[in-house]
Amino acid sequence: MSEAVDFKIVEEPKRPLAMHPKKFGLWLFMASVFILFMAFTSAYIVRRAEGNWQIFELPALFTYSTIVILLSSVTMQWTYFAVKRNQRANAKNMIVLTSVAGVIFLALQWMGWGSLIESSIHLVGNPSGSFLYIITGLHAAHIISAIVFLLVVLANALRNRFNLNQIEMCTTYWHFLGVLWLYLFVFLTLLR
């Protein structure tokens, strides 16, 4: 009898696959940002196809800003590795460096706008110019949000709090905006 009691029926329901919810949410957010820019670039294509479209050179400064933002991705990734290896001082430096690179990027974009205005491409005027300002401006707004995120990470780091998930999310977002800019840059260069 007592042996029979030891027989058990078991059912093993599987634990569903799951990611860190916040990281996952970030991916969804990036998807919607991506769609936003897809909307602008599609609108650009549709409008361009209709003719009456002013053609002009992208400012050379945008090439430099592209280099800066790509380099900042390196320092950002460096931050992540440093935190992972627990090299805290190193990590702090890299966060600062990345933020500074972000600010330089913004400054270069701003100066790029200046040189556009010098060659009399204004926000108001032919839609080809207006699109350029809107697209680059909106991208810059996202870079600002990423810098704010970096500053939050930095504030935590200065209090010696390193949250690897948070830093990973910040890194992902930063890379995303870098790649997004690369796409926009190539797009705007090829489809003038």
């Binding site: 998807a31 909307a39 609108a43 809107i134």
Partner: peptide
Amino acid sequence: GILSFPVLFAAALLLIFDRSFGTSF
């Protein structure tokens, strides 16, 4: 929603610029 609302946002943003900043989208 995630795939379509950003597009409305884009449409509205361009409209805002046409209305308030003089662009001609």
